[in-house]
Write a protein that binds this DNA or RNA. Structure first.
Length: 779
DNA sequence: CAGTGAGCGAGCTTCCGCTTGACTT
């Protein structure tokens, strides 16, 4: 048994560190936090100065037990959790649980897993920083209070669904998406005309090339036409040429957030997928820790990278750089995300290969030379008016870091169109140019694009909201709660007016472009919109984009010993408690109602609103004699944008399609989406089928096919006992009523031949000895 | 499973941040 027990957070780190420290140390991991607030009654004694009630959660008991035993046998326990607020708190919890005295337990920290860093840390242990621990307690308690007092308000005031939630991070994330959507809905595109003139000249090799020059944008079609007319028969002369050297520098090495952004832009990955693959790479020892906000690289790594660049591209491509974090809220407990060995250009694992190569390239580029460019700007005079055209070209003089990597961009330009700059042919001042044509193209301004998962993470990080470990889970939460949906949107066609001046003639045409198409973007649901409105109205302070930044600076005060954590929490809680009480007492139930007009047939009011089961439209009022009619909105419709005509169209269901096999075929939309009802059986319709337009001829094969699929799934039926043996994706299983019973491997093999007695015995046995409950994720 | 759209009121839900596997119908 080693004399020393050293505890870190991550098991993969433990392995590496154990190798570095040798036989005197046994290195174990505590797998993150080992204690958390109890869930009952918030886990906080508010009346006793916010005293937290901590418990060891079910899934941490095993690791705590093991650490306790090891701690007892060791001479000395070293706490080597991450150097940030959470890491300090984890160390304190370890003291509490393992019975260590914080006043003399050795606490060490390192920001990189390298031999010198670890050795140095062990040589200079310090003690636990209780101020930092208290800052974490304030953070934890405040988040618990906000979440556990705000969520119940929603349960009371929302007519639909339970398990709604609100919190400091998730509610603001939804707000960002909701606001962006409304910005887009309210956006009025404005058109103007881009003026481009095309000329043909000879390039350095004497080959004719066409290049373009831009004129001042014209605001109306009339102005554009006038301008083109005014150029009729003109000569074009190069008036001035400027050549400017420019540089481009590489981006900083990856943090969690930038990795998620680039993997989204270049590989099309969602943030969860990126993190899953990164975790695999980390566990296999290929990359450093993937949840980090630091752009720092260790000296060891820098040397490795420099050597690699030198080997591969030569010394003139090397340019060592230190990057600074732009983000104030960064805690920098780890290194940037980088390969552990730069001479490994790739990995064998097919899934994570592309992500690894992205990390490798980004890391290399970060220490490479600037790319050197030469920008040429030519001003061109028009003989028939005093307009000036500008041609720009860019030539790469030295590729530098671009040899391996360039950073992607979110497409956020506001409709100015593509600015790609090619190479200009050699031009002389005073040169007469060979005019080809001039084109005026209508361009529309565009609203800001909807968020992708990754661009939302970027925004949250800018606001200092959330942490590397929570970006992906936060997005999962708001999707799971139904506040937000990730989907595509089809664009709509729009006419573009185009005018061309060629051979002294003016031609006018109309082309069309597709606008507003979106792929894999985040859309707020009606639920997300109404909940956001409600929270904004009653809890504007918490919904404020600066709220987290504000309390973070107070946590800093606590960490610096200038403020008591319980006092800070109390100053937040007193007014918050009042807001909660006022809201519960006075706020209306959340309906999100919007009036669409009056039914032309009955004159009754038509409204769109939230109902118990989601967004719907309603004709008539509950107080009227005749019952109102209801219809659910389609998934792509929204209370905020649905029109009267679209609403009335929804009342076309249920539809009778006619007879099939002697029974009536009906389509409708139910609790679980569109379905066909036929002969007392129900068949769900897939997404691509429209229940409003499906015909009997289309419905019949669906009935046959679905009926057959169901038959194939069914291995055996015991009618009397209402027990079925069904085939699922994990093999055969037993279904009785709503409950499923799992079969063992042996039972699965003879599933089709099981007798009713055997089946009953299996059920009885499973009821008596239920399979051990694992901390199962709730739906 | 295939309705409902309001309200009664059991009993339940819920936060953010650290970490990984176990388990799915």
């Amino acid at each position: 048994m080693a004399k020393n027990l050293l505890i870190v957070e991550s098991p993969a780190k433990a392995k590496t560190i154990e190798k570095i420290l040798g036989d005197d140390f046994e290195v174990k991991s505590c797998y993150g936090h080992i204690r958390d607030l109890e869930k009952d009654d918030m886990g906080i004694d508010i009346k006793h100065n916010y005293k937290p009630r901590y418990i060891v959660p079910e899934d941490k008991q095993k690791v705590v037990k093991e650490l306790k035993q090891l701690a007892k046998k060791s001479d000395e326990v070293w706490l080597a959790t991450d150097e940030d607020r959470e890491g300090e708190a984890i160390s304190w919890h370890l003291c509490e649980v393992l019975g260590l005295d914080p006043k003399n337990t050795k606490r060490i920290v390192f920001h990189e897993i390298t031999k010198p860093a670890i050795k140095q840390a062990v040589a200079k242990p310090r003690l636990l920083d209780m101020n930092l621990v208290n800052a974490q307690q304030a953070r934890r308690v405040l988040d618990r209070i906000v979440g556990f007092e705000l969520s119940p308000v929603l349960w009371r005031k929302m007519s639909m669904g339970n398990s709604l939630s609100a919190g400091r991070v998730q509610s603001v994330a939804v707000r960002l998406i909701a606001e962006r959507e409304r910005e887009i809905n309210a956006f009025k595109p404005v058109s103007s005309f881009r003026i481009e003139a095309f000329f043909t000249e000879k390039d350095a090799q004497g080959r004719p090339v066409t290049f373009k020059a831009e004129g001042a944008r014209q605001n109306t079609a009339q102005a554009a036409e006038q301008f083109l007319q005014s150029c009729m028969g003109a000569g074009y002369t190069v008036k001035d040429i400027q050549v400017k050297p420019t540089k481009r520098s590489p981006a900083a090495p990856f943090t969690t957030s930038t990795l998620q952004q680039e993997a989204s832009r270049k590989l099309g990955y969602g943030v969860s997928k990126t993190m899953l693959l990164a975790q695999k790479l980390y566990e296999a020892g290929h990359i450093t820790y993937m949840r980090t906000d630091s752009v720092n690289l260790s000296d060891t790594a820098l040397q490795d990278i420099q050597g690699q660049i030198n080997n591969q591209f030569g010394n003139k491509y090397v340019q060592m750089r230190k990057y600074k974090n732009k983000n104030e809220s960064a805690q920098e407990a780890h290194e940037a995300i980088r390969p552990t060995y730069m001479n490994h250009h790739t990995v064998n694992d097919a899934d994570s290969k592309r992500l690894y190569e992205l990390i490798w390239k980004r890391t290399m580029a970060s220490q490479m030379a600037d790319a050197e460019l030469e920008k040429t700007i030519a001003k061109i005079a028009v003989s028939t008016n005093n307009a000036e055209l500008t041609a720009t070209g860019e030539v790469l003089k030295f590729d530098g870091f671009l040899k391996v990597y360039y950073e992607g961009r979110d497409d956020e330009d506001m409709g100015d169109g593509d600015d790609e700059e090619g190479v200009l042919p050699p031009l002389q001042k005073g040169q007469q140019l060979h005019f080809k044509e001039m084109k005026a193209t209508e361009r529309f301004t565009r609203p800001a694009p909807r968020y992708t998962e990754a661009s939302l993470v970027k925004k949250l990080e800018e606001l200092g909201i959330g942490r590397p470990s929570t970006y992906a889970p936060t997005i999962s939460t708001i999707l799971k709660r139904g506040y937000v949906e990730k989907r595509d949107k089809e664009g709509i066609k729009r006419d573009l007016r185009i005018m061309v001046l060629r051979n002294n003639q003016l031609y006018k045409t109309v082309e069309n472009e597709n606008t507003g198409a979106e792929k894999s973007k985040l859309f707020p649901t009606d639920l997300g919109l109404v909940v956001t409105d409600f929270l904004n109205q009653h809890f504007d302070d918490i919904m404020d984009y600066g709220f987290t930044a504000k309390i973070e600076s107070e946590f800093d005060e606590i960490a610096n010993g200038k403020e008591q954590w319980t006092k800070m929490v109390d100053e937040f809680y007193q007014p918050f408690k009042q807001d909660i009480a006022n809201t519960l007492e006075t706020a209306q139930r959340i309906k999100g109602e919007r009036e669409l007009g009056a039914d032309t047939e009955t004159g009754k009011k038509v409204v769109a609103r939230m109902g118990r089961f989601g967004p719907m439209v309603q004709i008539g009022d509950a107080n009227e004699e005749e019952k109102p009619r209801f219809a659910k909105l389609k998934s792509t419709q929204s209370i905020e944008t649905i029109t009267y005509a679209e609403a009335m169209d929804l009342f076309r269901l249920p539809r009778q399609l006619g007879l099939f096999e002697g029974s009536e075929v009906m389509v409708n939309i139910g609790r679980f989406g569109p379905y066909i009802a036929h002969d007392k059986k129900f068949y769900s319709l897939s997404k691509d089928i429209d229940p409003y337009s499906i015909t009997l001829e289309e419905a019949a094969p669906i009935i046959i096919e679905k009926r057959q699929a169901k038959d194939e799934r069914t291995l055996k039926v015991f009618e009397k006992e209402k027990i079925q043996i069904l085939k699922g994706p994990y093999g055969p299983y037993i279904k009785q009523g709503l409950r499923n019973y799992k079969l063992t491997k042996e039972q699965q093999e003879k599933a089709a031949s099981l007798t009713i007695e055997e089946v009953k015995a299996i059920i009885d046995n499973l009821k008596a000895n239920p399979p051990k409950k694992v901390a199962r994720k709730k739906k």
